[in-house]
Design a protein around this nucleic acid. Structure first.
Lengths: 117, 117
DNA sequence: ACCTCACCTGAATGATTGTTCAGATGTTTA
DNA sequence: TAAACATCTGAACAATCATTCAGGTGAGGT
């Protein structure tokens, strides 16, 4: 790595140190990246946006994004383990909903930014 | 696809139709997914968080995330084409900053959600 | 003009990710 | 209990992404 060259010339150590101090803790960064990763797919955004409006079952969601129930199930598992959605079984069917409305807020914020860009 | 089976049994067409209506337009969804994709990497989060505090050059940023200037340059290009950061040349060096503070807001919102989850 | 340095780019490799398919689980109804 | 159905899971394949390396650009100093 050419770090040695760079270190002595253009890197402003003070500036870097200052900024490093301000960085969020490692687990926080990883957690946030994980959440954003879940939001980084149009189909998952559709699912989440739909669930922000009302509770839906896997079958409805599959219809919504025009794919197989299996594929949706995989996506939902990801969203579930990331704590973005929660589910509730009613007979044969499983109904999903947003876990809380932080998610909805993030979603809206992202869409708003997309509108303006 | 087993849509035909499913359609006649468990899919609530009305519910799906209602939710489909509420979905954001296609380009908006794609745009938002694109933005979230940029935020879905710990190193890029570090870069953005740092740039939210102050303007930094490529070399500083490489030092910050402990990687090569080339790798950072690639990342910065992604962030630049996604309009999340902007840059300014001063002599040999190029200084980067956040393009606007929507980005900062998204970042904070994501981190806050990570804290609570 | 030349050399050095900060930064950028394109192509290739290696790692992650998404989807599909086949089969498993658990629930209802007959 | 057996059959039908909604959903879940694991493994394999395809696509997508990040990093590296080698070379290229443009600014400054000598």
């Amino acid at each position: 790595m050419e770090k040695d060259i760079c270190l002595t010339t253009c890197v402003d150590q003070q500036r870097v140190a200052r900024v490093v101090q301000g960085l969020p803790a490692e687990p926080l960064l990883l957690g946030a990246a994980e959440i954003f990763k879940m939001l980084a797919d149009p189909n998952r955004l559709r699912l989440l946006h739909a669930l922000a409006q009302e509770e839906l079952c896997v079958c409805d969601l599959a219809e919504l994004v025009e794919t197989s129930a299996s594929a949706v199930s995989h996506q939902l598992r990801l969203l579930r383990t990331a704590r973005l959605v929660a589910c509730r079984r009613e007979g044969k069917m499983v109904y999903y909903r947003l876990d809380d409305d932080h998610v909805g807020r993030l979603l809206r914020e992202g869409l708003r930014h997309a509108e303006e860009g």
